[in-house]
Amino acid sequence: MLAALGWGAVAAASLLLGTLLALGRRWSPGLVGGVLAFGAGALISSVSFELAGAGLEVGGPVAVAVGVAAGALAFFFADRAVERIGGRNGAGTGGLPLALGALLDGIPEQAVLGIGLATGEGISIALLVAVFVSNLPEAIGSASDMRQAGTAKRRILALWSAVAVVCVLATVGGHALAGVVSGDLKAGIDGFAAGALLVMLVDQMVPEARDKAGNRAGLATVLGFAVAAALSNLA
């Protein structure tokens, strides 16, 4: 259990690191866009190799497909709720969709880390690297947008600290429940994270990266994918 807590904290630390980097200096829109594009590429790699691919290895395609659909719907409706809250308050959502995406994909991703530890598979270095590399741009992009929208630094740090704590607890929860998690359920968890990520990427992260970084976004995305894929396969 202590190992799950420790490794979960390592993975979630990138969320706080990205937040502190965003709050420590003013980031130009072009730089934020480039960071988001790099992160989008890393997340596409994560979906391909560490989530959908891993899910198909431990469970059936139906379990993965159901998980993908559930994750996609969860992000879609949660994102609409965030937009409605922002509209009622007379303010933009200012980076909240990226924080929501980090939460909805972070919980199942880190639960899988905990399950692997408890079942004797050890820590998946590939997944750990993918989580760490992709978390940084999400946190930087979201915290920068929230700061630009006028949100107090204290509130931004509190939000991302809460997301990080929930993700750490998900690792511990995965470790605790590993004994009752079947292969199909683990595949569904992987699929849920993949589905939430894909909707967030298409609806939020990629359009914002393109808007801020212009035609450099595509190159940065490919670079992020290549780096994450290489690290994943090396691990």
Rank of each mutant, 00 (worst) to 15 (best):
A139W: 03
L219E: 02
S161N: 01
F49H: 07
A9P: 05
L56H: 14
L185V: 15
K153S: 04
G218R: 00
V58A: 03
V168M: 10
S142G: 15
L136C: 06
L104H: 00
F77W: 08
A228Y: 01
V165D: 12
V32K: 12
V168I: 05
A196V: 03
S144L: 03
A158H: 01
A170H: 07
I44H: 08
W160A: 11
L51E: 07
L17S: 14
Q204E: 15
D203M: 15
T19D: 03
L219T: 02
L177N: 09
P29S: 15
D145P: 05
A4L: 03
M1S: 13
T19F: 00
G101A: 12
D211E: 15
E138M: 15
T221Q: 02
A152P: 11
A42R: 03
E50F: 14
V166A: 06
R84D: 13
G122K: 05
A52C: 10
A91T: 14
S134A: 12
L5R: 09
A70P: 02
L128Q: 12
F38V: 03
A196Y: 06
F225L: 07
A52T: 10
A78N: 04
A209L: 12
I115C: 02
D79M: 06
G106M: 10
A3V: 15
R26I: 02
G41M: 00
I189S: 11
A226Y: 01
G90S: 02
A235F: 01
V32W: 07
S134K: 04
Q204K: 14
G195P: 11
L15P: 12
L231C: 02
V58G: 06
A170N: 07
G173R: 08
I123D: 13
I123N: 09
S28D: 08
E50Y: 10
F38Y: 08
G94L: 02
S182Q: 10
R88S: 11
V58S: 04
C167R: 04
A99Q: 00
S46L: 15
L43D: 11
L223I: 02
F225H: 05
A12I: 03
H175Q: 01
K186Y: 13
G55F: 08
K153A: 06
V166P: 01
A99Y: 00
L136Y: 06
V47M: 10
V206P: 00
R216S: 14
I140P: 04
K153M: 01
R26W: 08
V66F: 13
A158T: 00
A152N: 01
Q110N: 15
G224P: 07
S45D: 09
Q148F: 14
A226M: 02
G183T: 04
T151K: 04
F76C: 06
G120V: 12
V82P: 05
G8H: 08
L36P: 13
A230Q: 01
L159A: 12
A74V: 10
P61Y: 10
R216I: 12
A194F: 03
G214T: 09
P207Y: 09
S28Q: 13
S124A: 08
K212C: 12
A230L: 09
